[in-house]
Design a binder for these strands. Structure first.
Length: 440
RNA sequence: GUGGGUUUAGCUCAGUUGGUUAGAGCGCCGCUCUGUGGAAGCGGAGGCCGGGGGUUCAAAUCCCCUAAUCCACCCCA
């Protein structure tokens, strides 16, 4: 048995590979990233990249010591020496805020919009579209508390999935208030459930201590019966005046822009740094956990990392989950183009000529060549398999006359092109290819 | 961390109550095929039946352990 990839990781494979599903198709990954780039950079976001590993302390303080991510899902990297340890990043926000503080990005015009994509790591048990190395597209805005920034962030996330062609996505929107609001609400929940702790499921007894809001979306039938019986008030009833006004403004903008959303009073962010606006995008058909991604405001995070007070808001979605949703909906992508031209020689003496012409043509488009002499039948078979648009067979006659007989594999027509005109011919082809791609 | 399913060729899968040398389709390679393709025919390569242990005259098949994988719980993207 040959060595295998580590549990919870995936290989991203070329089109045409056996066992290829959408969430491991390299070209599909690139497509999602391209669409996100287009949408986000149109909005003024700049690309940023941070290391794949960070100080463990950054993750502990950023994500929060009470979260599952820190308690049991950290990929810790040890090395010689007495260093406290690095961790492979479990999410992108803490790193980006760290980079903002460390590099003086406050100098750039505020609010600063940043985006990135890349792998994230969480050491947990795998299930459908839940991996140990997964990939996110991430958008962050630093330096503004304006609800308009919140609304635009949600709009952008919606716009990315819409441009990707997904139709079955639902936005669940809530507000978890300011920290003091949440404290009051948690105290209320602890009081309410504490009196009936014996009726809670074991998981929820645990939640009562760590994060009582999690009891609200418990899957246990007993918990849900108790919830209904007690008539639990939603978080939104506990919002302070400012948080309430902020949340109202966010909703008003979204309605004005036609972004459909459902108010979800049970929305709870799993990371400690969130406050106020919180939302998730959901899609049925990607398994038990239907979240494509989520986001929220994190005005206290920069201070928590030891920096100046910098308000922020951001979101991330899982690329694998989005690809899973696209597969579930049967959304088709444009296929990656094959070569414009495939060149092959009929005899060994001209193999070098085919190679030289191909290399010279590459500044004008994708050109491939055969590494050994072939019979004409094989040339076209090989050209087809590579999804080439044209193919030319070079024999001693063509070599002597300095021409190519180029066959259009779509129409079957052959035309003679002088070698001197090859580059102009390829230019025409790549312009045509661009044209048809834009139409599609 | 917990529970269930699965594991036979590159891929999708057969394989009878345990019984000789483990099969098919597709894919791959070659030939038919010296001047214009997608085809067909013929041939070929490719398997420690996930790994280890046990029962048996005999194990892909029965038992135990283990790993990987898929799904679910917790939680998250």
């Amino acid at each position: 048995m040959p060595l295998q990839r580590p549990k919870g990781t995936q290989d991203h494979l070329p089109d045409g590979s056996p066992k290829l599903s959408r969430d491991i198709q390299a070209s599909a990954f690139a497509h999602v990233q391209d669409v996100a780039r287009r949408v986000l950079e149109r909005s003024g976001a700049s690309f940023i990249a941070t290391p794949l590993f960070e100080e463990a302390e950054l993750v502990k303080r950023g994500v929060g010591g009470s979260t599952d991510i820190v308690r049991k899902e950290m990929f810790t990297v040890y090395y010689f020496g007495d260093h406290g340890g690095y961790v492979l990043r479990p999410e992108g926000t803490a790193s980006i805020v760290r980079a903002y503080l460390q590099n003086g990005l406050k100098q750039l015009p505020a609010p600063l919009k940043l985006w990135t994509h890349g792998p994230m790591f969480r050491a947990e048990n795998v299930q459908k579209l839940r991996l140990r190395q997964f990939h996110q597209v991430d958008y962050e805005v630093l330096g503004s508390t304006d609800p308009l920034v919140d609304a635009e962030a949600i709009w952008l996330m919606w716009e990315v999935v819409r441009e990707l062609g997904l139709t079955g996505v639902r936005v669940k929107l809530g507000s978890i208030g300011d920290p003091e609001d949440r404290e009051r609400y948690n105290a209320y929940l602890r009081g309410l459930f504490g009196a009936h702790a014996d009726r809670l499921s074991d998981d929820s007894k645990d939640r009562l201590e760590r994060n009582p809001m999690r009891i609200l979306d418990s899957k246990s039938a007993g918990d849900q019966a108790l919830l209904a019986e007690l008539g639990v008030k939603p978080m939104l009833d506990f919002l302070g005046e400012d948080a309430r006004a902020h949340f109202g403004a966010v909703q008003a903008y979204l309605r004005e822009w036609g972004v459909p959303f459902d108010l979800d009073p049970s929305i709870v962010r799993g990371l400690d740094y969130y406050r106020r606006t919180a939302w998730e995008l959901h899609h049925e058909g990607i398994g038990a956990k239907s979240a494509l991604g989520g986001g929220g405001r994190y005005d206290g995070l920069a201070e928590q990392l030891g920096g100046a007070a910098v308000p922020g808001i951001g979101w991330a979605f899982g690329i694998e989950r989005v690809l899973g949703a696209l597969e579930a909906e049967g959304v088709a992508f444009a296929q990656v183009d094959g070569p414009l031209l495939y060149l092959a020689a009929m005899d060994e003496a001209n193999v070098g000529l085919a190679a030289r012409l191909a290399l010279a043509g590459r500044s004008h488009g994708r050109v491939e060549f055969a590494y050994r002499a072939m019979k004409p039948g094989s040339v076209f078979r090989e050209a087809d398999r590579r999804r080439a648009r044209h193919a030319a067979v070079i024999g001693s006659d063509e070599a002597a006359r300095g021409v190519l007989n180029i066959k259009n594999l779509g129409t079957g027509e052959t035309r003679e092109v002088p070698v001197a005109d090859l580059n102009a011919f390829l230019d025409d082809l790549s312009q045509q290819a661009r044209g048809t791609r834009e139409q599609a």
